[in-house]
Simulated assay, not measured.
Amino acid sequence: MSDNKLVAETRTQFGKGAARKIRRDHKIPAVMYGHGAEPVHITLPGHATMMALKVTNALLTIVIDGDEQLALAKDVQRDPIKPVIEHIDLVIVRKGEKVTVDVPVHTEGEAAPETIVTVDAQTIQLEVEATHIPENIVVSVEGLEAGTQIKASELTLPAGATLVVDENTLVINVTQQISQEALDAEMAEAEAEAGIEHEEAGDAEATEGDDAAAEGDAPEGEKAESEDA
């Protein structure tokens, strides 16, 4: 069984009003289903459940009236503003069976100088045993040069895990860091294509000087009239 043991209570009241009351009591409404069983509507302890779900793909042991059942959180509905879980869909799993999950990709190490490491696939879909779901897939980028690409087929997977995604899926892409000079050149080229022209500093000063001269050459009457305006 998993270390995340949650004692649940069955519920018979449904709807928004009932859900609000459950959340006011610092609990979370949930439904558990799978393996042909009828859906079971339950409430879970709020704080303990939120702590358990901090781990991606956490395997939960749901205890209902003394009976224990393994489950995975299939869908977690969260409040868009407050740090509150509004509802959870749990899918029943059994020890030894395989499940399909999205596992986060983490990088470690430093690539070669003046390179940028991009994680193109933030998660990788794997088929793994329900009781052996990895928290993440770690990829070393230590010393990798620009132009290096790591595909899904090149990942080191946990024992018993198999890829669900296409093996040619790009996971890590290492590119050359662009210099400020090259960036300025690209910007200038883009502006030229768009027809944007920048007035040179010398031209701007000359224009200002011409304006001042024109104002100085104006007749006294016009100057006075201009000042009165």
Results as ranks from 00 to 15, higher is better:
residue 2 S to F: 07
residue 6 L to H: 03
residue 10 T to A: 14
residue 15 G to E: 03
residue 15 G to D: 01
residue 16 K to T: 11
residue 16 K to W: 02
residue 18 A to K: 05
residue 21 K to V: 06
residue 28 I to Y: 00
residue 29 P to I: 14
residue 30 A to P: 02
residue 33 Y to T: 02
residue 38 E to L: 06
residue 40 V to Y: 02
residue 40 V to S: 09
residue 43 T to M: 01
residue 45 P to I: 02
residue 50 M to A: 10
residue 53 L to G: 00
residue 54 K to Y: 03
residue 55 V to M: 11
residue 60 L to E: 01
residue 63 V to C: 04
residue 65 D to A: 14
residue 67 D to G: 05
residue 67 D to N: 13
residue 71 A to T: 04
residue 71 A to V: 04
residue 72 L to V: 05
residue 74 K to D: 02
residue 74 K to R: 11
residue 80 P to T: 09
residue 85 I to D: 00
residue 86 E to R: 12
residue 90 L to E: 02
residue 90 L to S: 03
residue 93 V to D: 03
residue 98 K to F: 07
residue 100 T to S: 12
residue 100 T to E: 15
residue 103 V to P: 00
residue 104 P to A: 11
residue 109 G to M: 04
residue 110 E to T: 12
residue 113 P to Q: 10
residue 116 I to L: 04
residue 116 I to E: 01
residue 118 T to C: 00
residue 120 D to Y: 10
residue 121 A to M: 06
residue 123 T to G: 08
residue 128 V to C: 04
residue 129 E to S: 15
residue 129 E to G: 14
residue 134 P to V: 08
residue 135 E to M: 09
residue 140 S to M: 03
residue 143 G to S: 03
residue 149 Q to G: 06
residue 149 Q to N: 15
residue 150 I to P: 00
residue 153 S to H: 12
residue 153 S to K: 15
residue 153 S to Q: 12
residue 155 L to S: 03
residue 158 P to C: 05
residue 159 A to K: 14
residue 160 G to E: 02
residue 160 G to Q: 04
residue 161 A to G: 01
residue 162 T to Q: 11
residue 165 V to H: 09
residue 167 E to R: 10
residue 168 N to D: 14
residue 170 L to E: 11
residue 173 N to Y: 08
residue 174 V to I: 10
residue 175 T to Q: 08
residue 176 Q to W: 07
residue 178 I to Q: 08
residue 181 E to S: 11
residue 182 A to I: 04
residue 184 D to G: 06
residue 188 A to P: 02
residue 191 E to A: 15
residue 193 E to Y: 11
residue 193 E to C: 02
residue 196 I to P: 01
residue 197 E to L: 13
residue 199 E to G: 11
residue 199 E to I: 15
residue 201 A to Y: 12
residue 201 A to G: 03
residue 202 G to M: 11
residue 203 D to Q: 14
residue 207 T to W: 06
residue 209 G to C: 05
residue 209 G to T: 13
residue 210 D to H: 13
residue 211 D to F: 13
residue 212 A to Q: 09
residue 212 A to G: 00
residue 213 A to K: 13
residue 219 P to M: 06
residue 220 E to D: 12
residue 220 E to K: 13
residue 221 G to P: 01
residue 221 G to T: 12
residue 222 E to T: 13
residue 222 E to L: 15
residue 223 K to W: 10
residue 226 S to W: 10
residue 227 E to S: 07
